[in-house]
């Protein structure tokens, strides 16, 4: 399949945003990176889907980001297991390994998924970086962001093979539900009372 023009640009957005999500200790940067990640994803899906349908992904992602942003406490991303420099360095190395893996296996995936190479690289990087995030953190916000990243990668793969409006709608519902669950886990509501 032919590579769309400027295909490296959304791929770069995905790489930079997922790396920021993995390393950042500040929630504002993470939410901005999360929003940029969805721009990259929307850009890529627009190669396969009509713009209107692809925009559903962008709107859903941004809404989820907004829900998480308004419900996070200031310490939601604070890590206890890593020091700042060594932890960041370790994460950077593992992220680099994920990029290498994505560049290596994306061409062979083209036999299964009829999509451009940059598109498949983006999907694999999202899945890989999301799994790294899930494997390295115990914080609810990081876990939720990691799940969103994995699901974004999967949505890219699935969009290449299926254009069902119902599935798109249900997955958007799942994304919004995940954001609400994230908000619930972060807000930690008031203690139990019975009437």
């Amino acid at each position: 399949m032919n590579e769309p023009a400027w295909s490296w640009l959304p791929l770069t957005l995905v790489i930079v945003s997922t790396l920021t999500l993995l390393i950042s200790q500040r929630w504002r940067w993470s939410i901005i990176a999360f929003a940029i990640q969805y721009i990259g994803m929307f850009w890529m899906i627009s190669w396969e889907w009509p713009i209107g349908l692809a925009a559903v992904k962008l709107v859903t992602g941004w809404m989820a980001g907004a829900v998480l942003a308004i419900s996070q406490p200031g310490t939601a991303l604070a890590e206890t297991g890593f020091t700042r420099i060594s932890g960041g360095g370790f994460k950077l190395i593992t992220a680099a390994l994920t990029w290498v893996m994505a560049f290596a296996i994306a061409p062979s995936l083209q036999t299964l998924f009829p999509a451009a190479s940059a598109y498949l690289m983006g999907a694999i990087i999202l899945i890989g970086m999301g799994l790294l995030q899930l494997g390295m953190s115990h914080q609810p916000l990081r876990v939720i962001l990691g799940l969103f990243t994995v699901l974004s990668g999967f949505e890219l793969l699935y969009a290449a093979v299926d254009r069902s409006v119902l599935v798109a709608g249900l997955i958007s519902g799942v994304n919004l539900g995940l954001a609400l669950v994230g908000a619930f886990l972060l807000v930690n509501p008031e203690p139990e009372e019975t009437l």
């Binding site: 249900l170 799942v174 539900g177 609400l180 886990l185 008031e190």
Partner: peptide, 18 residues
């Protein structure tokens, strides 16, 4: 996706308020 929605709904049930 429906099973996943059920899983998401179950989280507030498993984590008691507060």
């Amino acid at each position: 996706p429906l099973v996943e929605l059920a899983v998401l709904v179950s989280i507030p049930m498993l984590v008691a308020p507060g």
